[in-house]
């Protein structure tokens, strides 16, 4: 069904609280205002990328975007290069977002026009964008501490005591996406296409155009996330947002979307982002190595899909079979 499942959101909320509680027992300082705020800003970048991934996956037929991390890296590097070469910072930010959209456009063209399976297409562009980011940056990180303060404020500033990117980027974005996915014609058409592409096409919906648009949006959002990460850290790295592919897919699936499309909601994605961010930050705070953090993300992803499949598919069938057997006997 389109829309989010309130049950799933409740479970995620409880899960996040439990994890947070667990970490807090071990190390109460995690709940300090500073820490909660840095957990939140960390979550923003992944959350934005997950929004884009969510749109792509909802488009259906195994659509997936494996290039989100690479796009965030190249967009970040381009933004940093433009700013360090003296262009005004708004132009730099614009470059980051637009280049992301353009890279998404490459994915869209490869998939919709040349009919390359999404996995292969985005794997190919992932290679290419990462390579280009390394070439453009000559393999180094680019220092942005000397960038205009207003640019850095995009990742470090705060408004009314709340980090800038949450109040002025993430929450408005969430609002817009809720509007787009649940209230707009585009969102409805996307759900329809993700549920049954043939029926949607025969009902006058431009399925290919819709899917292409999701890749462009995903690219633009990844670019935006890359820019914010660069501003937050004061450096741009060709790697972009670390583990973005894995974590964005994990967030989307955890948020209640079906990996087969036609399902999902930005609200679910947002709550799943919080849950993932709590886990990630908690591990980080307790000095877990990034490799371990990524491993935990992988574990969460596999377990969630596994449990979901068992609950949705196997168990009802097993129960039905048992019932039949009883009836027969």
């Amino acid at each position: 069904m389109s829309g989010f499942r309130s049950g799933r959101i409740l479970i995620l909320g409880v899960f996040a609280l439990l994890v947070l509680g667990g970490f807090a027992v071990g190390n109460p300082t995690i709940l300090s205002a500073d820490n909660v705020s840095s957990m939140a800003v960390f979550a923003v970048e992944l959350g934005i990328i997950a929004f884009g991934q969510g749109l792509v996956i909802e488009g259906g037929d195994g659509a997936i975007d494996l290039s989100v991390g690479a796009i965030s890296g190249l967009a970040q590097i381009l933004t940093a290069l433009f700013i360090t070469h003296g262009l005004p910072w708004p132009v730099g930010i614009g470059i980051g977002i637009l280049s992301g959209a353009a890279m998404g456009g490459c994915n869209a063209a490869a998939i919709a026009r040349f009919r390359i399976p999404p996995i292969i297409a985005t794997l190919g562009t992932m290679f290419a964008f990462t390579g280009l980011a390394l070439i453009a940056s000559e393999g180094n990180t680019i220092d942005l501490t000397a960038a205009p303060a207003r640019f850095l404020a995009a990742g470090q500033g705060s408004v009314l005591g709340v980090p800038f990117q949450i109040l002025c980027v993430y929450l408005p974005l969430l609002g817009v996406l809720v509007l787009v996915q649940h209230r707009s014609r585009f969102g409805r058409a996307l759900y329809l296409a993700g549920t049954n592409a043939t029926a949607a096409w025969l009902a006058g919906i431009h399925v290919k155009r819709l899917r292409a648009a999701t890749y462009v949006l995903s690219g633009a959002l990844s670019g935006l996330a890359g820019v914010i990460a660069a501003a937050r850290l004061g450096t741009a790295t060709p790697d972009g947002v670390p583990e973005a592919n894995l974590i964005s897919i994990a967030i989307v699936v955890l948020g209640g979307a079906s990996i087969f499309g036609g399902d999902g909601s930005p609200v679910g994605t947002a709550i799943a982002t919080i849950a993932i961010a709590v886990v990630n930050y908690g591990l980080n705070y307790n000095d877990f190595n990034p490799t371990l953090q990524a491993g935990m993300m992988g574990l969460i992803l596999v377990l969630v899909v596994l449990v979901e499949n068992l609950v949705r598919g196997h168990l009802p069938r097993l129960i039905a079979a048992a019932r039949n057997r009883r009836k027969m006997a």
Partner: peptide
């Protein structure tokens, strides 16, 4: 295969051809 959006509600199914008119 070509007609219904099985898991979606009647409302979505009945209005899918008139989305521009209904927005």
């Amino acid at each position: 295969k070509q007609g219904i959006f099985a898991p979606m509600g009647l409302e979505s199914n009945l209005t899918c051809t008139g989305l521009s008119r209904l927005s």
